[in-house]
Amino acid sequence: MSGKDIPFKPEKKKIIGHEGWQPLVLALVIGTAGGFLFDWLRMPLAWMLGACVFSTVAAFLGLRIGMRVRLRQGMIIILGVLLGSGFTPELVQRLGEWAVSLCVLTGMTMTGAALCYAWLRRFTGWDRVTCYFAAMPGGLNDMTIMGGAMGGEERAIALAHALRILTVVLTIPVWYRLVNGAQTSVLTMVHGPTGNDWKDYAILIGCGVVGAVAGRLLRLPASFMMGPMIVSAIAHLGGLTNSQPPGFLVAAAQVVVGTGIGCRFVGANFDKLHKEMAASIGAAFILIACAVGFAEITHALTGLNLDATVLSYAPGGFAEMSLIGLALGIEIAMVATHHLFRLFLIIFTGPIVFRTLLKRDH
């Protein structure tokens, strides 16, 4: 099946899924219900995971759900500020310890992308360009846009990346819950408004606004998260505040992000796309296996915490993986730094490698 037959759109417009307020409200209600259930089941990252599962099922059932990109971006800003609060002077001093890990991450990214490219070429009818950009272990929006500009099928690339994120989000937290017994919720790690005064809130709001504007002006990848995270990290490292966004906002942000993942599958017909979807999920598991394998190598070489390294290498979205790290009590600075590094690596080297190795044979 050609990517042109896939009724699946990347997130580059104002709406993910169906337009209108009713689809948005319905999506949020469904996502919130999923969050409540998963929180009751004491799942890690309950609000995002529950919202993701419920909204994905709703999308495949044909319910009219939708997510406004602006709302998602606003919640991503909150999460960026929250993640920035995890940077402390003590953690910055450890950057040198991550040098070897970042080098291994580079090898893992290249290996995983090559294996997934070969896998997708074998099990889908997609062309070389589409398979190449669909195989990248990160950058849903960036890879979709770049792949489309170079002649690939945007909808197929977006489908593969959305399924990659969905697979990782559904796999890793459940693994930690069932195998390691992890039950930590983000809400238990964010103490809400207690101890925050108006100056703290002013600084946090300022970090979000300034960071979002700066991120857009500088055209940073994942700008609505990266910009606020960097500014928040500077504020916390500089001792301006040690506060965090309130817990209820963090839960709301998780619901919006999780619901947004599910809304990406609006219009996807499982009966017509089962081959491509199965291949994309298989590619996601290849990347997860690479993450675990290379994390074991890094652990042996450096002694870094294995769980933190696995999460740092996991091929999920930047926002999703950082949230999972926060929920599991894993060092946020390490997870965020590695995912930012991989995102930059993919965005800057992906097109160059494509032009050098593949385009001339295409």
Rank of each mutant, 00 (worst) to 15 (best):
G247N: 12
R264I: 00
G139Y: 08
A58Y: 02
A279E: 07
L95C: 10
S312I: 05
E331C: 04
E90A: 11
A114I: 08
A58V: 02
V29A: 08
G239Y: 01
I330S: 02
M229T: 07
V256E: 07
L220W: 00
A27T: 08
I330Q: 08
W119N: 05
D200H: 10
W98P: 00
L91P: 08
L273R: 06
G329V: 09
G317D: 04
A51T: 05
I30N: 04
L45K: 04
E153G: 07
D39A: 10
R68Q: 12
G258R: 00
Q93T: 15
F123N: 11
V210F: 02
P193N: 05
H362C: 15
R355I: 09
I347D: 07
V209N: 03
V25I: 11
N196Y: 15
E19L: 05
G195E: 13
L61E: 12
A114Q: 08
L340F: 05
L343F: 01
I205S: 03
L340G: 08
E153T: 03
P245L: 05
N269M: 07
H274Y: 03
M110C: 11
G152P: 03
V174E: 08
A202T: 13
V29E: 09
R216A: 10
R360G: 10
L187S: 14
L345M: 13
T356M: 15
I145T: 11
G260I: 02
A319M: 13
R64N: 12
I16A: 04
A158G: 06
L95Q: 09
A202W: 02
V310P: 00
A149M: 14
L306W: 14
T259V: 08
W198T: 15
A212P: 02
C131R: 05
M43S: 14
L357Q: 10
T167F: 04
A279S: 11
C52K: 00
G62Q: 11
E97V: 13
S85R: 06
M150N: 12
L358T: 05
G211T: 06
L323F: 00
C290R: 01
G215L: 13
L306C: 10
C116A: 12
N180C: 11
R164M: 04
T144H: 03
E153M: 04
T88S: 13
R219Q: 11
C290S: 03
F133Q: 14
W47Y: 14
F318N: 05
T171D: 04
G148H: 05
H338R: 01
I172H: 01
S322C: 12
M75T: 09
D200N: 13
G316S: 08
R68K: 12
F248R: 03
L311P: 02
I261G: 01
A118Q: 12
V69Y: 03
V255P: 06
L306F: 15
R122W: 01
G303S: 14
S232K: 05
L24S: 11
L340C: 14
L340H: 04
V25H: 07
L63C: 07
T337P: 04
C103Q: 08
